[in-house]
Design a protein around this nucleic acid. Sequence first.
DNA 1: CTACTACTTCAAGTCAACTTTAAGTCAAGA
DNA 2: TCTTGACTTAAAGTTGACTTGAAGTAGTAG
Lengths: 141, 141
Amino acid sequence: MDISEVARRSKLPASTLRYYEEKGLIRSDGRKGIRRVYSSGVLERLAFIALARSAGLSLDEIKNMLTTEGIQVDRELLLSKAEALDHRIKELQAMRDGLRHAASCTAPNHFECPKFLRLLKVANHRWSRTRRGKGLNPDTG
Amino acid sequence: MDISEVARRSKLPASTLRYYEEKGLIRSDGRKGIRRVYSSGVLERLAFIALARSAGLSLDEIKNMLTTEGIQVDRELLLSKAEALDHRIKELQAMRDGLRHAASCTAPNHFECPKFLRLLKVANHRWSRTRRGKGLNPDTG
DNA sequence: CTACTACTTCAAGTCAACTTTAAGTCAAGA
DNA sequence: TCTTGACTTAAAGTTGACTTGAAGTAGTAG
């Protein structure tokens, strides 16, 4: 496959594929002249990267979970990422429930609604235990 | 409260509070001389913002969910955000399950493990239905 | 051979969300 | 009164993840 086919099948722009290669997340299997040639395995790899990105992992973190061949076998790392995701899932569930409640709650100001405040508090407590470093995860819904 | 107390209680740097004010997410209730004075309600507001941020919403999106007084009463908006969060939660669950499986799976290469690939595929299918615009999550930061 | 087009590299630009810096203000204590 | 220190503003800098632009190259159609 050439880069345009990978781009088409992965729905990523070619520039992103080059960028990922530069960062060491994927490899082209060789060149045909000056042009990159990819094997089909790159698509699964890109699918994994996309999923991990959408789960809020940084490219560096993702890189650490990958080898040239496949997924890193560092069980500790994998499990700790899974654990972190689990916390994040609970935050999102609290947020979702909070929004649904706010949508149906008749209180004039949600910041005075006990149920809403409780959801906020639960999530915030979890979040302060959970957060790493100083930044949040940079991703959108 | 002055800004340092809000900073201490919200665990956000004062610079962030000023930045949020500049962006219209929070307000100081007045000034004592040149200095900002806050009412305690700002803490709940900041808690909501923190939760929404950690759920992946941008400051602009969050701003749209807030009024000067509290949470926006636009049920449509709130419910659609909740819906989007629900999709995201399922992505994260797929990722988490994928990682846990990878950690325990004995296959030499996870990209050849049917169970792992199935998890990838499920998540990616959902993702392509879910994604908006062309890019992945902008992020970050 | 010439044109065309899809690739290539490298550098610079963009964006969100902050953070840092420089220069100034003000209330309080020695 | 002078100094200290926590605040203030406006502007510039930072980071991660890309994107864009300029200039060059290689396979192919005419």
